[in-house]
Design a protein around this nucleic acid. Structure first.
Lengths: 143, 143
DNA sequence: GAATAAAAAGAGTTTAAACTCTTTATTTGC
DNA sequence: GCAAATAAAGAGTTTAAACTCTTTTTATTC
């Protein structure tokens, strides 16, 4: 349903929301090691998040990634749009592009229920909600 | 969530349930054209369905595919297991293999609701139910 | 202002799913 | 039993996602 890239981006954003402050940045090295994500692959993903203003970064010694004013309130759907495009929730279960409510494929109605529930979650949940769950040890960022 | 192969298999099985009888078989050519699925790729998928006893086939002139005693009652979950393996419904949304209820990833609980609803559908619905929906023009096999 | 540390960018390689083309095996009908 | 029709099998190619390695740019510290 979602790409691995999205999972990496979501976990990285949550980690930065928890640990990345302007006065205590998180380096790519530390991020990749902490989350067990391939270093350079994660680098590309982080570039994308920075480019879209979800998080901030600085280069040079003591550089790294840190949360900005938008980070905490970012809905998961925004991150998904960056990594997987904005069409994820219009795709049908059978990858039939012409499937819709007026011309449903054989799984359309059943899948729509499941998919729309997930859309609701993605539009409502924010990075700070995930961060709180992780801080409260109700969910895990690694393994 | 599901492979395109699964979609092809499901649509083909439903088409055979509707049109394939021992006295009126459906050739691969006809099947691929009717469903707009790449001919030889569908051939491989059909081999798999036949091997697993979901449908029957005969070679030679007037050969083709046709429904057998199991076809109509086959749950969608059986076809999914053939095309995508039986682990689809244990995978977490972030493709984290070690995610489970006791050690949930940050999307585990939300995704579990959606996924388990879909599992329920897949375990309950059978090919004949899909065939009836198509026959009643409540769902479409093509386009 | 030189050295260094870090992100950013570029240019690959790998892997698996999707798809294509060719050859082989089997069945039927004459 | 030979020709033809059809599924089965084999051996590719293509494409996109996932991943790796190298070079460039920028900021900091001495």
């Amino acid at each position: 349903m979602f790409s691995k890239t999205f999972g990496y981006a979501l976990r990285a954003a949550t980690f930065i929301a928890i640990h990345g402050k302007e006065e205590k940045k998180v380096s790519l090295q530390e991020l990749a090691q902490s989350l067990e994500i391939p270093h350079h692959f994660l680098g590309k993903i982080m570039q994308d998040l920075v480019r879209h203003g979800i998080i901030d970064s600085t280069k040079g010694p003591n550089g790294g990634f840190f949360a900005n004013s938008r980070t905490a309130q970012t809905p998961l759907l925004d991150i998904l749009a960056i990594t997987d495009g904005s069409l994820v929730f219009t795709h049908c279960a059978l990858n039939n592009k012409r499937c819709n409510a007026a011309h449903p494929c054989i799984l359309h109605n059943d899948f729509a229920v499941c998919r729309d529930g997930m859309l609701q979650v993605m539009a409502t949940k924010t990075v700070e909600i995930l961060a709180a769950e992780v801080a409260g040890v109700k969910a895990y960022l690694v393994r």
